[in-house]
Design a protein around this nucleic acid. Structure first.
Lengths: 152, 152
DNA sequence: CGTTGACTTCGAGTCGACTCCAATTCCTAG
DNA sequence: CTAGGAATTGGAGTCGACTCGAAGTCAACG
């Protein structure tokens, strides 16, 4: 059945995932692979395309700010096999929510910066740029209730 | 003319900006204030609401990933006074673009994660969750041309 | 056989941005 | 006068996530 699949060296995986070989070894140490990474007769790491798939997902997690411990937790659940899908789901949904709010936050901040850029553009066009920053940053930030350190 | 404005202590500024007193002192050392921070007779820092305004802008910069050196550069330009608005503008626009792409990137990554969450939701609802991760992460990531390290 | 060159290991180093410590000083209230 | 609380300073410590160095191993090529 299981036809011996084409395997990949660490540098090939690096090229396919954008993660450096250093990082791949590091991820292994950190327990971010579901199965222990296999080795060939010479002791070199041998990866499958499934692992590459996972690494791509992993990269998305990382890129969106998921911590290595959280990823490891997810991996552990997968490793334990069927039965804990609820927990995996909770973990994923939780992260998804964080990313969603981060996107919104970033969009807001972006608007502020865009406004500042537009202000400079207007002043430069009007030749009145030397009036910028007479006293204080001339763009005002909403002041949003200043992080009352959430009781928890 | 200049009516002595209400001044603020470091803890008040901290409360209004969400930055810790530690961070405010740190920012001073790092040269992130346009004017040297004034002191009262007891040697304590005294802030104006203009400085609070700037700190809010600063926070937006930081929150969107602008580095301290870049912020310092901007501050230096402001400190030099009128005449370099073009350069300030360039700096701001540059950052604005970075933030814009970051937002897009994050949105894409969010979609991938959302899809994974939806997949879990479907399987859990259908009672077929134990079939998840039979072999590999069951959600596929687009594979986007893997960061060919931009020649520059 | 000798030399590449890609790999291995372990441990240490780096980086940015805080975050905190210890000792000291000052103001205010009791 | 004294105790408490909020500042001050310089320097050190922390944290997460890599990133790298050094020394060694192995297969293949000429």
């Amino acid at each position: 059945m299981a036809v011996a699949e084409r395997t990949l060296s660490i540098s090939e995986v690096s090229a396919r995932t954008g993660l450096s070989a250093y990082t791949l070894r590091f991820y292994e140490r950190e327990g971010l692979f579901v199965q222990p990474v296999r080795r060939n007769s010479a002791g070199r790491r041998v990866f499958t395309s499934q692992e590459v798939e996972w690494l791509r997902v992993c990269s998305k997690f990382r890129d969106t700010g998921m911590s290595l411990p959280d990823i490891r937790r997810y991996v552990e659940l997968v490793r334990e096999g069927p039965g804990n899908e609820e927990e995996r789901f909770a973990l994923l949904r939780n992260h998804e929510q964080k990313v969603r709010s981060r996107v919104e936050e970033l969009q807001q901040a972006h608007e502020v910066i865009e406004a500042k850029v537009a202000l400079y553009a207007r002043h430069l066009a009007a030749g009145s740029a030397d009036g910028l920053w007479r006293n204080g940053p001339e763009c005002t930030v909403p002041e949003d209730a200043q992080d009352p350190p959430a009781s928890a």
